[in-house]
Amino acid sequence: MRILGIETSCDDTAAAVVENGRHLISSLRSSSAAIQQKFGGVVPEVAAREHVLSILPTVRDALHAAGMDWQDVDGVAVTRGPGLIGALLVGVTFAKSVGSALNRPVVGVHHLEAHLYANALIAPIQFPALALIVSGGHTTLAYWTDHGQLAVLGETLDDAAGEAFDKGARILGLPYPGGPAIERLADQARPDRSITLPVARLGADSLNFSFSGVKTRLRQLAADVPDRAPELAFALQEAVAEALTRNIERAYEKYPVAHLYLAGGVSANRRVREKLGDWASRRQVTLHVPPVELCTDNGAMVAALGYYRLTKGERLGREEGPQTPWPLREAMAGARGEESGTCC
């Protein structure tokens, strides 16, 4: 079953073809990041306009790279939310139009759950597992017991990990997107234990995250020691990686699983991978991380998740459109036909 996946939640227009939820046939992406750089971040109206211009050629190129024609598509999966409403509207409308024209089923998927399925393109998912999704707009920790069975354990209370990098980069005068720029600058840092940033403590039982304090302290230090930008970037990277690792350890104490899945744009950060890898090695847990090219938004992850949703009979209704905001716990409860709530 060959699924066409379409992703337009933010500034990347992406399309891919995946067979049976596991085998990546083609994956193409058109990014408006270069256009957004002049604004220092994503402007929703600009992103939506670029999606309108890019979506048809991107999908055509993905099908061509797969050696397929439109009629060879067995189903369509599209990111329904969360994200920028204008950007999502472009993708969902296009996907529904393709489905209607070809008489193929269409399913809308949750962006965060889709990120995890980048791992399914490398090897079958092993349940039960802990799942950590870290991206520009979201930081979510979940207990993953089966396809469509994610119980949210903790979320960000303010800035997400990716936002901490983007806003930190802006403070340090670095370009958008901030994550790669922070990593490059941190590589130039000299050892200096006197420059550190706080890791929020939200209570012994809390598995939530908070990164706003890191941003505030970084701004103060940038004013005090403006000539130490590499060391400040290094400290920011360490604080984010430490916050993620601490909550993984706390979650593991409650759910001692054998597998940890990492996903989202921040999972491309080398220091985050190293620190979680060290933790996993100590705990004899297998850490699963997608290739860097599948960490950021892409159509392959959408197609992979879409396969499992379509085979369960899920469909995007004629009157259904983008959904944002769309909390992951609410999406998971809806998939089970339950009321939303906290985990366990």
Score class of each variant (00 low, 15 high):
L4S: 10
L4H: 04
T8H: 06
A14W: 00
E19H: 08
E19M: 05
N20H: 12
G21D: 07
S27T: 14
S27R: 13
A33C: 12
Q37I: 02
F39W: 11
V46C: 03
A47T: 06
A48D: 03
A62L: 11
W70S: 04
G81E: 02
I85T: 12
I85F: 00
G91L: 01
K96N: 03
V98T: 07
G99W: 01
I122G: 09
I122K: 12
I125Y: 13
F127Y: 14
P128D: 00
L130S: 05
L130F: 12
Y143Q: 05
W144V: 06
L150G: 10
T156M: 06
L157H: 13
I171L: 15
G179S: 14
G179D: 10
I182C: 04
A186Y: 15
D192L: 06
R201Q: 14
D205I: 11
S210G: 07
L236K: 12
A251P: 04
P256M: 02
A258K: 08
V266Y: 01
V272I: 04
R273K: 04
R282I: 09
T286Y: 02
L287S: 02
L287E: 05
H288Y: 07
V289R: 00
C295Y: 03
D297A: 00
V302D: 00
V302F: 00
R309E: 15
R309I: 11
G313E: 10
E314P: 05
R315T: 14
L316A: 01
E319M: 14
T324W: 02
P327W: 04
L328N: 04
G334P: 05
A335M: 15
G337A: 08
E338S: 05
